[in-house]
Design a protein around this nucleic acid. Structure first.
Lengths: 360, 360
DNA sequence: GTTTCTTTTGAAAGCGCTTTCATAATATTA
DNA sequence: TAATATTATGAAAGCGCTTTCAAAAGAAAC
C-alpha cells in the first residue's frame, strides 16, 4: 500500500511527457537504439524502427532539447540582436533570415537592443549563455570585448547592414559610403550644391556615420562642403522628419536637396512639404535611404536607395548554416544597393550648373 | 611525455570555455558552492563568493544554458509564432513582448508561420522541443491537436489579436467583432448604406473572419446586408488595395464606404483614389483596421481602429511571466480598441438618412 | 569551556540524451 | 557447414549543471 502510494506520488511529480527511455521500454529496445532511430534512422533495422516510431507516436514523445543539446553539443539555435523590432526595416531582414534558417532546421533567438550598446551587450551575453551556435548582429561598431566574448566561444557571426573589405568579420551587408556617394553624386549632377541632411543619431550607429561620411566625401569630391548647420541628428520618426524639414525651409539659405538617412525622415519631409505648400522637387529635392513599400506611393514618389534587406537576411542565414555544417565557405560578398529615382528629386531650383558657381 | 602529449590533446579537444567545475577548482571550493554562488549569492559566505566571482571573471566563465536547463528544468525561453515578421504590424507587439520578457530575464524564440497552419504547427512543435516554457500565438483558430500538444507539456500560452470571454484560453487581445461593429455603426451613422470590404484571406485567419462577421452583424442590426459582390479577399498589400478600390469604383453601384481589414488595403485605396481623382471622403469613405504610423499623415488622414499592439505584447509577456513565476493570475482582460476618426470618412454622398431608404 | 542551534559547505545523485565501444546477430564467402 | 566480414544492438560513460542530504563550521547560549 505504502509502496503503491509512493509510486503514484512519484508518477505525479514526474515532469510531463515521456522520455526517450520510456519510448525505448515501450518498444522493447535499448535507449541507445531508440536514440539512433531518431537521429540516424537507417542505422536501425526497419522492423525495430517501426516499433520505436509507433511508441513515439503512442506516448506523444517530444524530445528534450536541453538534454539533447547537452549530449550532442548542438542547440540548433541562432541568435539575432537587432536595434529594433517594431518597424519593417529590420523585420525585412529578420523574416527571410528566420525563414532560411528554419528550412535548414535552425531556430532563431531574437532580442532588440533599442540602439543601446549596453543592452546589446547584455543580450549577446544572454544569447551566448542560451547556447546559440551563431549570431547575427547589425553594424560593426561595438566594444572589442564583445567580439572577444564571441570569439572565445568559437561561434560564427555575421554583421549586417554594413560591409568592409577587411577579413576581420563576416558581413552580410552593403557599402553605406558608396551608396551615399552615389546618391549625393546624383543630386549634384542635378545641379544641387547646398545639401541638407537628416541623419539618425550618429553615436553608436555606424550605418548613420558611414552614410554621412559618404555624403561629405562626395561633396568634397566636387570641392563642396556640408554646412554643419544643415545636418540634423534625430531619432527615426516621421515627426522629426517634418520638424527638421520645417527648420530647414526657414533657414536664410535653405538646402535645395535633402538627404535622409532613413525613410521616416523622408516621409515626414514630404508630408510637411505638402502641408507647407513647398513644391517637391521644384523647390527642394528629397531623397532617402531604405526604399520601403511606401516610397512609390507617396506623393511625390520618393527617390531612395534600395537597401537589400531580404538578401542580407538570406545571405547571413546561408553563410552561418554553411559555417555550422562545417563547409569551407568564403566570406559573403558585398550586396548591391540600387538608387531608385522617382519624382521627389529634380534639377536644382536655380540650375547651378557645374562650373558656374552659384552667385554669392 | 606520452601522458603530457595526451593531456594536451585532450585540452585541445575540449569545448571552448571554462566549466563551472573549472571555476570551482580555481576558487578552491566545491562545484556545489560555485553553483550556489551564482544562483543564490547570499547563501554563500562573502569571502568565498568573492573568490568564486573572481574566478568567473578570470576564466571568462559563461554558464552552459543546456546543462543548466537540464538540471534545473528551466530554460527561461519563451516562444512566439507570428504570421509574419517583415512588417510593422506584428513587430509592434513583438518588440514590447520581447522587451518586457527580457526585463524579467526571459529570451524569445521566434518563428513566422507565413499564415500557413502547417508551418505554424511545425514551428510550435520545434519550439516545444527547444524547451520553451511558454508560447505566444496569434489568433485562436487552429487544429485542436495543437492545443493538446501544448497542454500535454503543461506550459502556459497566450493567444493574441483575438479575445473571447470563454475560459479555454488566455487571450491578450481585443474584441474584433465589437471593433468592427463600432466602426460600421459609425459609418452607418454617417448615412452609409452600401459597404465595400477589403478583407485579408479569410481561411485560417480568425481575425479576418471576426471582423467581417462584425461588419455583417452591424449591418444586420439596421436590417441591411453586405453585398457579396462588395467583399474582396486579398493578400495584404497596398497594390491589392489599389486594385480592389479600382474594381469597386467601376461597379454599377459602387459602395459609399469601404472598410479595410488591414491598413495596407486602406493605403492602397487612398492612393488609388488620389490617382483616379475620386474624392475621399466626398465620393467615398475609407476606413480601416490597424491604425499605423502612416494613418495620420496620409492624405486624407485615415480613419482607423487602433489595435493595441504594444499593450498586447506587454500584457502577454506579463501574464506569461506571472504564470511561470507561479503566481495565481487571473486571465488577462480584453484590451480596448479605439476608433480614431480622421478625414477619410464623412457623410454618405446622398445623405441617406436613417429611416429614409435610398431611392431604388 | 560545553552544549545547542544555525548557517555553510561538499559529495553525490541525477536531469534526458548522444555516442563510443564491445558484443551479438546477420550476411557473405569459401 | 565453417570461417569471415558486416551490420545492428545494448551497456555504460558522460555532457555541465542543480539540488538534496548529511556533515562541518560557526554563532549563540549556558
Amino acid at each position: 500500500m505504502t509502496g503503491e502510494d509512493n509510486e503514484s506520488v512519484v508518477k505525479y511529480l514526474r515532469p510531463p511527457g515521456a522520455t526517450l527511455e520510456d519510448v525505448a521500454d515501450a518498444a522493447g529496445v535499448s535507449l541507445a537504439t531508440a536514440s539512433r532511430c531518431l537521429n540516424h534512422p537507417d542505422s536501425v533495422r526497419a522492423e525495430k524502427r517501426q516499433r520505436i516510431l509507433d511508441a513515439v507516436e503512442r506516448l506523444h514523445y517530444v524530445p528534450h532539447g536541453a538534454a539533447r543539446a547537452l549530449a550532442s553539443k548542438r542547440t540548433r539555435m541562432i541568435g539575432a540582436v537587432l536595434p529594433s523590432l517594431d518597424n519593417a526595416l529590420f523585420g525585412g531582414a529578420l523574416g527571410p533570415f528566420q525563414k532560411t534558417l528554419a528550412a535548414a532546421g535552425y531556430s532563431v533567438l531574437i532580442a532588440s537592443s533599442d540602439y543601446d550598446p549596453d543592452l546589446e551587450r547584455t543580450h549577446i551575453r544572454n544569447l551566448l549563455e542560451s547556447g546559440v551556435e551563431a549570431l547575427l548582429l547589425v553594424g560593426a561598431l561595438r566594444d572589442p570585448a564583445i567580439y572577444q566574448l564571441i570569439d572565445a566561444k568559437h561561434i560564427p557571426y555575421v554583421l549586417s547592414w554594413v560591409y568592409e573589405k577587411d577579413q576581420h568579420h563576416a558581413y552580410a551587408g552593403f557599402d553605406n559610403i558608396g551608396a551615399a556617394i552615389h546618391l549625393t553624386d546624383y543630386l549634384m549632377m542635378l545641379g544641387h550644391r547646398r545639401f541638407g541632411v537628416i541623419s539618425g543619431i550618429i553615436e553608436d550607429n555606424d550605418r548613420a556615420q558611414l552614410r554621412l561620411q559618404g555624403i561629405r566625401s562626395a561633396l568634397n569630391g566636387k570641392s563642396l562642403d556640408l554646412d554643419p548647420d544643415c545636418v540634423f541628428e534625430r531619432q527615426f520618426s516621421v515627426e522629426d522628419g517634418r520638424e527638421v524639414f520645417r527648420l530647414m525651409m526657414s533657414m536664410s539659405k535653405p538646402p535645395t536637396a535633402i538627404v535622409c538617412g532613413a525613410a521616416p525622415f523622408a516621409y515626414g519631409a514630404l508630408f510637411e512639404a505638402a502641408e507647407m505648400g513647398v513644391r517637391v522637387p521644384d523647390a527642394v529635392s528629397v531623397a532617402s535611404f531604405d526604399d520601403m513599400w511606401l516610397a512609390p506611393h507617396i506623393s511625390p514618389p520618393l527617390t531612395a536607395v534600395r537597401t537589400p534587406r531580404r538578401e542580407m537576411g538570406e545571405q547571413a542565414a546561408r553563410y552561418l548554416v554553411a559555417k555550422l555544417e562545417g563547409e569551407r565557405v568564403a566570406l559573403p560578398r558585398a550586396l548591391e544597393t540600387k538608387l531608385i529615382v522617382r519624382k521627389s528629386t529634380g534639377p536644382a531650383p536655380f540650375a547651378n550648373l557645374p562650373g558656374s558657381p552659384p552667385p554669392e
